[in-house]
Design a protein around this nucleic acid. Structure first.
Lengths: 178, 178
DNA sequence: ATCCCATGTGTACAAGCGTACACAACGATG
DNA sequence: CATCGTTGTGTACGCTTGTACACATGGGAT
């Protein structure tokens, strides 16, 4: 097992990348900007992440874990007593209510997979994880549909800059559940 | 320096921009690449579109019209006799079955609005247009939900590279309609 | 103690970028 | 015909980019 000379170096670069994407968007992510944000020399970023895609994959992985933590901390998704639609709607509300730049960051990374094949497996994995989680409360078809609807609602909130309407989300999600 | 006083110059630049985005993605769109694709000098693109955002707005507008034409040519959305869910599912199928790069292009432009405020009104307009159209067949809340679900389903088809399942889409869309 | 190699650093290069701006060619207007 | 504003063209400047590569360094193995 190779021991790292600076074990935090790599992690710090990922954190900086997430910060850069959140503040300035993927378009402005470069080896140089992330190096500046992480306060490390340029060569350090190119050493740990030979291509920008590598860095994006690592960032998306970490962002996904962030969302997973929100899901886990609420925990209501697992409990068969709770209202599934309401729980999902509440989850989205909590997520969207927080730091907007964080939300935009995760969405941007997620959507970037559309054109970056390297990110596609990670994005697909996120969708599958959520669907699997939902499958414990309902059937597979419904689970997939719920994920699609969640994605669509989030997208519209972010694109139209309309405020998130939790009641509306809960109502619509409930319709999908048979 | 062959052609001068080209009345279709502006339009050709937009077409070239759409081609560039479709083939290489927004990230590779620049005044120079679009100039090369349109076979016009660099100065010509900067003259007609002072900023790249201007060009993107024009391209997104045109792409949206392309989708609207598919909707209009089918025409089933207006007819109260048809099954709304089935019509929507068929629409998505027709759209997704065609040239994949075209679909990805429209999605990419649509999603780019997340980080480019200039595109946001155009993207919102597209969503509103479709919702308005659907409102003639159902209530406003359901219309919005259908748009969200359509967006989400398209997104998942493109992100997971799974084949489009029209039957599944129709079934799920139908659940949303009260 | 010595060597090896993963890790970290600095710098340089060619390519591409947006932008600005001076000039050229036309249509319209007088 | 003269003038003017619109449209089109060429070029140059300063900047950022990805990438490569030589060099530094220090921990683990021998």
């Amino acid at each position: 097992m190779a021991r790292r000379y600076d074990p935090e170096r790599r992690q710090r670069i990922i954190d900086a990348a997430i910060r850069v994407v959140g503040e300035k968007g993927i378009a402005r992510l470069s080896h140089r900007t992330v190096a500046a944000a992480a306060d490390v020399p340029l060569g350090s970023t190119t050493y740990h992440f030979k291509t920008l895609d590598d860095l994006l994959v690592a960032a998306l992985r970490q962002a996904n874990e962030g969302f997973a933590k929100v899901v886990a901390s609420r925990g209501g998704l697992e409990d068969p007593e709770t209202d599934l639609a309401g729980e999902l709607a509440g989850l989205m509300g909590e997520w969207l209510a927080g730091d907007r730049t964080g939300v935009e960051l995760e969405c941007e990374l997620y959507l970037a997979a559309l054109r970056r094949p390297a990110l596609r497996p990670v994005a697909a994995e996120w969708a599958r994880d959520l669907a699997d989680r939902l499958s414990r409360r309902t059937d597979a078809v419904t689970a997939r549909a719920l994920v699609a609807l969640v994605d669509g609602i989030c997208l519209q909130v972010l694109l139209t800059e309309a405020p998130y309407d939790e009641e509306y989300a809960r109502d619509v999600l409930r319709r999908v559940i048979p």
